[in-house]
Computed example of a mutant assay.
Amino acid sequence: MKYSTGKETKRKIIDATFQLMADKGFDALSIDDIMTSIGRTKGSFYVHFKSKEELLYEVMRTRLDRGHGQMAEEILKELSKDNCNVRAILERVTDEIHSSSGQNRLTWAFAFYHLLIHSRKNEFVREWLESNEDQWSNFLRMIVKRGQELGQIRTDVDTQTITNMCMAIVVGYDILFMLNPQIDFSEVNHIHDWMFVNDQNPKNEG
């Protein structure tokens, strides 16, 4: 029972930090704030975490990481097929990016952008964000390149530029969502029109 209670307390600390970080930012957040919000003493905090920074890293890992590991293997298999639909794959990935934010996307968005601000003075956080961005960029570049190889994505724009545009669209919609939570994320799929070759155009004429 003690083990179960300890796990529950740790989860509550992480959840509370995630929410409070979204509300006021990490720098303005104190351990007292966190523990008061869940009705626990400050002493019990140190049973689970050595410091506020250690807690932040756990929040990053469990609440803010948009990792793609679970779908990467399946996507790779689909891309290896000659008849794969790259647009469908890209739209699936885009949907996954937004759904990975969880049920409260607004909390995720504000917490993540407070994390960006904090990264200006925390090297570990900055390196984590850079690594996360590199992983997603490499993953999307692989999809774009495959689309170009199959003649589904335009080739008059280089692969990295298109990849950067895809990344910028996702980040841009995160910001728009913070300003207008009613925004429709499915609009992203229509924005992709500019990069895909029109399927109605005959590939071989004459």
Results as ranks from 00 to 15, higher is better:
K2I: 13
Y3A: 15
Y3W: 11
Y3G: 15
S4M: 13
T9Q: 14
T9A: 07
K10A: 09
K12L: 11
F18D: 04
Q19N: 12
A28L: 11
S37I: 07
I38D: 13
I38G: 14
K42R: 14
K42N: 08
Y46V: 08
K50F: 14
K52C: 09
E53K: 13
E54V: 13
E54L: 01
Y57L: 15
R63P: 04
R63Q: 08
R63K: 06
D65C: 03
M71R: 12
A72W: 04
A72V: 07
I75E: 14
L79R: 13
D82H: 02
R87L: 07
I89H: 10
L90Q: 10
E91F: 06
E91D: 15
D95E: 07
S99A: 12
S101V: 05
N104K: 06
R105L: 00
R105C: 01
F110G: 01
Y113E: 05
L116M: 11
N122W: 09
V125K: 10
S131K: 08
N132D: 09
E133K: 03
S137A: 04
F139D: 05
L140A: 04
G151T: 03
G151Q: 02
D156C: 08
I162P: 01
T163F: 05
T163V: 06
M165T: 12
C166G: 04
A168Y: 04
A168I: 03
V170F: 01
I175H: 06
I175D: 04
I175R: 11
L179E: 11
V188T: 01
I191A: 04
W194T: 09
N198F: 12
D199R: 11
P202V: 03
